[in-house]
């Protein structure tokens, strides 16, 4: 509950302050969003499984975002940025879907 409130507050803060992202960081933003979503769904699922751990959640969130951005950054430098970002999106997307399916089973028993 408190997490949902914090999420909403974060959204409101973003809407109010409109933080500008430096230009060099802009390409990594979508990847960071996917990584963050993965962490959030993982956290929700862990909560429903009853094994939620605050430290794991925060560390996995930050490291997922950083590593996803780093992979894409390296890909850009090597000239395969598009392919590597596709790879990151596919892997994280599979995880998001899997976690979402587990959450669905928890909530609706279906």
């Amino acid at each position: 509950m408190i997490a949902a409130v914090a999420l909403v507050i974060g959204v409101v803060l973003g809407l109010v302050f409109r933080p500008t992202v430096p230009l060099w960081l802009e390409p990594y933003l979508p990847i960071a969003v996917v990584a963050a979503l993965d962490a959030v769904f993982g956290g929700i699922r862990a909560r429903l499984d009853g094994i939620f751990d605050a430290k794991v959640f925060v560390v996995s969130f930050i490291s997922n975002v950083l590593i996803a951005a780093l992979i894409v950054f390296m890909g850009d430098k090597l000239g395969v940025g598009g392919q590597l970002s596709t790879a990151v999106v596919v892997v994280l997307g599979i995880r998001i879907f899997g976690n979402a399916a587990a959450i669905r089973r928890h909530l609706f028993r279906a």
Binding site: A3, A6, I9, G10, V11, V12, A36, A39, F57
Partner: peptide, 15 residues
């Protein structure tokens, strides 16, 4: 920590 993490996620999404 969870609070700050969720705040960051929301901020990231909206940004």
């Amino acid at each position: 920590m969870v609070w700050a993490g969720c705040l960051l996620v929301g901020l990231l999404l909206v940004t």
